[in-house]
Amino acid sequence: MRRRLEPYLWLLFSGGGVVAALTLPVLVLLFGVLMPLGVVAWPSAAHLRALVDAPLVRGAVVVALTLCLFHAAHRIRFTSEELLGLRRWDALVAVLCYGAAVAGGVTAITLLF
């Protein structure tokens, strides 16, 4: 079971890594740094709503955010095991990490649909 699951987890990891690399820096630059500092004005609430209005866009946002979370979960799983010596608890750590990613994906769905 574990053996057969692992390649798919790596696939989600690398897919999420690409999505995170392409989209997250510009989004955190805009919404997390430039807008709060007043360098760029916040878009109006109506404009932000319109951005995620199309169902196709909503679906894409959910998929993208979930992939990013799976990427992070996969790395956090192995890094925490290496740094903190938790290799013995791999099954538990894996459930916690991927579980959090699934929870984040479900949150995205409930927020957007």
Partner: peptide, 25 residues
Amino acid sequence: VLRELTSVLVAWTVAYLLLLLGAVA
């Protein structure tokens, strides 16, 4: 290790964007 730890802030960024989406909703 620094590269691997970027994943923590990747997760944070997604959480932040979810907060933004919640506020928009």
